[in-house]
């Protein structure tokens, strides 16, 4: 506060302090943040120990030894393969989720026969326990004599989770979409495909990126639905899980750090894309 406003300073001093509820709520908030991020940060910090490092504090040395160990030692498990499979699977899920949600969002703008049934079936797969759903899908594949694999049965299991999510997001996005835009485009001579390409998709683009982001992250760290459906080769979350059972070195923590970085990169990429789309619009305007 500057000297030019002494009046205000006096008033602040005169005011009674913050009510006791403020301090209680602040304590709860701090405890919550610590509980949320504390364990994660412990893992990140402990992953940077040297050869002598263990699974608990105190920190022993400072190096990237366990990161090297993670990618070179076979005994730690197939992290690289798991990572690749998870990325490819998440990418497939993302594409299918975006396409599926987009089409569902377009379809659900008007009533059609059985629309409520379809909607509740979709919500049903959202609330069904993932593990049970995964077991069901695994059994179904077995019954038909198809070998379960991360790119087939696990893909389906993931979609049962990401698609309803994506569709719900699309509903929210679609609520702000004015059908008159489509009509105006048709009125100006656009074919159905041109309407979609030149009007609908560009207007919905930020929403579609959000759906993609959802699809990717939900699939990338999906565990319960993958457990019984990914077949003989593990996705990354399954690999991490099996490592927690038999690896007792900080390379487990290093894995946590690496996957977190990967997640942040993807989120950053998506947010960057949204920002880019908005900037490009703004630039076209400023380019006058």
């Amino acid at each position: 506060m500057s000297n030019s406003t002494p009046h205000r300073r006096i008033r602040t001093l005169d005011e009674p302090g913050k009510p006791w509820t403020f301090w209680v709520l602040l304590a709860v908030f701090v405890a919550y943040v610590l509980a949320l991020y504390g364990p994660m940060f412990c893992i990140y910090i402990l992953s940077f120990q040297d050869l002598r490092g263990g699974l608990v504090f105190p920190m022993k040395g400072l190096s990237v030894h366990w990161f090297v160990d993670l990618f070179t030692q076979v005994r730690t498990g197939d992290v690289k393969g798991g990572f690749q499979r998870s990325i490819v699977l998440a990418a497939m899920v993302t594409v299918l989720t975006v396409v599926g949600s987009f089409m569902a969002g377009m379809a659900f703008r008007q009533r059609f026969k059985g629309d409520t049934v379809v909607f509740y079936l979709m919500i049903g797969s959202l609330v069904a326990p993932g593990l049970v759903l995964g077991i069901g899908i695994g059994m179904l594949f077995q019954y038909f004599g198809i070998e379960a694999a991360w790119y087939s049965s696990a893909l389906g299991a993931h979609l049962s989770w990401t698609l309803p999510f994506g569709v719900l997001v699309m509903f929210a996005v679609m609520a702000r979409f004015d059908r008159a835009w489509e009509e105006a485009a048709r009125d100006l001579g656009a074919s159905s495909w041109q309407v979609i390409r030149m009007v609908v998709i560009p207007i919905l683009a930020p929403g579609l990126v959000a759906v993609a982001l959802f699809g990717f992250t939900l699939s990338y760290d999906e565990f319960s639905r993958s457990l019984q459906t990914s077949g003989s080769l593990n996705t990354l979350p399954l690999e991490i899980w099996s490592m927690t059972l038999n690896v007792t070195s900080p390379s487990l923590y290093a894995l946590g750090t690496v996957t977190t970085i990967a997640s942040f990169l993807i989120i950053g990429l998506c947010l960057g894309l949204i920002a880019y789309l908005q900037r490009r619009r703004a630039r076209r305007v400023a380019g006058a």
Binding site: D178, A180, W181, E183, A184, A185, D187, L188, V199, P202, I203, A205, R281
Partner: peptide
């Protein structure tokens, strides 16, 4: 024919 829509329906993007 060409139509001018109520609230104009200009393409926002």
């Amino acid at each position: 024919t060409a139509m001018m829509f109520q609230s104009y329906a200009l393409f926002p993007h």
